[in-house]
């Protein structure tokens, strides 16, 4: 019975589970960006949205039975020192797809810089308005509001 359940999960849920979760996380982030009132909460929503995209890309690059995209020491030695053709030593399915990893690696670092810039702007907003709540800021900006 247990084996049956595991087989069912492996056949029907596992192949798509990463994609479902990526959609769910992305929608959590989008909902937070639309409806949350606090600017820091909006930024957390933005970061969740961003990690959802990265999750999607990294999930694409996975292969069954694959390891990390770094050659083993033995393989590297065989190709570089002994001069074997790389096609004989390397099988493509043995390594995860490195291209999505590269694209996402830079995206993470750029993401933290833009997060820092957004935090800087929200600090300036707090300096001018004394609050981080969106509706209070809009109240103060409206002609005839407080201030």
């Amino acid at each position: 019975m247990e084996l049956l359940a595991a087989g069912f999960i492996e056949d029907n849920i596992v192949p798509k589970f990463n994609y479902w979760i990526y959609v769910i996380l992305m929608m959590i982030g989008l909902y937070a960006m639309i409806t949350k009132n606090n600017l820091i909460k909006k930024l957390i929503g933005m970061a969740v949205f961003q990690t959802a995209i990265i999750l999607f890309y990294v999930s694409i690059g996975v292969k069954e039975e694959s390891g990390i995209p770094i050659l083993g020491h033995g393989q590297h030695h065989e190709i570089v020192e002994e001069g074997k053709p790389s096609g004989e030593v390397i099988t493509k399915d043995e390594f995860a797809n490195p291209l999505p990893h590269v694209l996402m690696l830079t995206a993470i670092v750029v993401g933290v810089s833009t997060l820092g810039l957004a935090l800087a702007i929200s600090q300036r907003i707090h300096g001018s308005f004394g609050t981080l709540e969106e509706d209070e800021i809009l109240d103060q900006l409206r002609p005839g509001g407080h201030d």
Binding site: P15, I60, G61, V62, E64, K92
Partner: peptide, 13 residues
């Protein structure tokens, strides 16, 4: 419509 997770013959791989 996506290829399954970990499929080594997905278009991206």
């Amino acid at each position: 419509d996506f290829p399954g997770w970990g499929n080594p013959h997905s278009p991206a791989s």
